[in-house]
């Protein structure tokens, strides 16, 4: 039985196209790299300053001069390249990243996203998220549909925004949604889940695609 997170990661991986430059956030989004479709060559960017992330290092062979944005050791694929943070964020803001995949605390039907602060409780900072959200050509949110029973897909985010109107797509364990000018369009639904069930845990009224299909994994 596939875990909800694996299902999300497998589905997001299908969104990536051969030749894309992709930045993966920490946590669930990192799993996407494990499920790339056959023959799809992706260049992964890490905002601390490198292109060409390879597979996780073998235990005992970690190189602490080669790390990801979480400070964890990584490997570099052949042809990989390191650069400074200014070049890295030029790549990000300049529209040279095809897709960024991030987790989130809240997303709303205007495509606004809040994932960097819970005032008074948790203030980790925005890191590179604000730049990635405005700069990447496509923003895909990979997250569980709810958090401890609380809704995360809302009419309007209640937490401070990380970016305004930047989200293009949301993938959860219940379905795949696109942000449109009219609202959130449900395009795919997980096996065994009904439209009523997904609507019950989603605050805005979902628009149901005429071509609604079972989630593609």
């Amino acid at each position: 039985m596939m875990t909800p997170k694996e299902l999300i990661a497998r589905r997001v991986a299908k969104e990536l196209n051969d030749g894309d430059v992709v930045n993966l956030g920490i946590g669930l989004p990192t799993m996407v790299a494990n499920y790339l479709p056959e023959g799809v060559d992706i260049t992964f960017q890490s905002e601390n300053g490198m292109l060409g992330l390879g597979p996780a290092p073998v235990e005992g062979e970690e190189d602490w001069d080669l790390t990801n944005a979480g400070g964890q050791p990584i490997t570099m694929s052949i042809g990989g390249v390191c650069f400074d943070s200014s070049t890295s964020f030029g790549i990000i803001r300049g529209g040279h990243v095809d897709a960024t995949i991030l987790g989130s605390l809240q997303v709303d039907e205007q495509g606004n996203i809040s994932n960097w602060i819970i005032p008074g409780k948790m203030v980790p900072g925005m890191g590179g998220a604000m730049d990635l959200l405005v700069g990447a050509r496509k923003v895909i949110i990979a997250m569980t549909h709810t958090a401890k029973g609380k809704m995360k897909i809302l009419k309007k985010c209640s937490l401070p925004f990380t970016a305004v109107k930047q989200v293009n797509m949301i993938v959860t364990e219940l379905g795949v949604m696109e942000i449109t000018d009219e609202g959130i369009l449900l395009t795919e639904i997980a096996p065994g889940v009904t439209i009523e069930e997904i609507q019950e845990v989603t605050e805005p009224k979902l628009i149901i695609s005429e071509n609604l299909e079972t989630i593609r994994i």
């Binding site: 400074d84 964020f89 803001r93 998220a129 730049d131």
Partner: peptide, 8 residues
């Protein structure tokens, strides 16, 4: 707190 790309 400053966005990373802005800070650099």
């Amino acid at each position: 707190l400053v966005p990373q790309g802005t800070l650099v």
